[in-house]
Amino acid sequence: MEDDDDNFFSSLNRPVNNFQNRLRNAPVDDDGDVPIRDAPLFFQEDEDETPLQQLIRHWMNERHAPDILPTEEDLLSRLLDHIRSQSETVQLLRSDPSSSEEEHFRIMLAQTEVERVKFIVRSYLRTRLFKIEKYARFIMTNPEVQQRLSESETDHARRFARLTDQHFYHSVLQSLPDTQQTLDDQPPFVPPMVTEPEKTRAVFVHARQNCAPVRLPDGTGLEMQKGHISLTPYATVEQLIARGEVELV
């Protein structure tokens, strides 16, 4: 398990920044020339989101949205770099036999945080994976959706769609009459055979700022003020989510 994770995180070969040095030298960083971000205030919201807070927001959006949202590849790789360098620092400090009790606590806390962030990264990716497999066929017939996926995700969708198609063909479809062999029928009065994201599904939105007006299904308009919470169909707020004006909660 542990090995799998390590491979997973190190498989994205990216340059390691000197974060471990920063961590080690943290006490002398007070002169301010090293860009360490100061912790945000307790209930300060939204402004100056840290990369981790951004990922948490995208993670929750992805979990609640019926559709696949644009991939956050850059953010993800930045955080993966960060996770890796923090882990390396921890390893380095651990192998140092002269580490003090204080050092010991710092190692323990850094390690705990690494595990927390890994959990979020993993859950975020798995949520996308779930949707990709569920909508594989839909994705492969829809270039607009493919743009929202990373390269490896599109690749996975393609292979998954092909695999299931072949499986269905070999196990059942080949013995059916020709007219019943297709997998993309759109017969009247029943849902189409290709599973599509159900965009009318309701979601809970929380306005992160004052939002541009949107048109509700009943024809009226809604202009959400910052902090507003609403239950409304996903299609209504799709654009606001894309622009980051609202988040799903």
């Binding site: 974060f19 920063r22 961590l23 943290a26 006490p27 960083d29 007070d30 360490i36 971000r37 100061d38 912790a39 945000p40 205030l41 307790f42 209930f43 840290t50 990369p51 981790l52 807070q53 948490i56 955080l79 960060h82 996770i83 923090q86 009790e101 204080e102 606590f105 710092r106 806390l109 850094a110 945080e113 690494v114 962030v117």
Partner: peptide, 24 residues
């Protein structure tokens, strides 16, 4: 992830974490 106030019983230098720098 939200911040709380604490009264520490150990000392620790300012340390950089993934979510930000905390301490001393």
């Amino acid at each position: 992830e939200q911040l709380v106030e604490i009264v520490p019983l150990i000392s620790m230098e300012k340390t950089a974490f993934i979510s930000g720098a905390y301490g001393p």
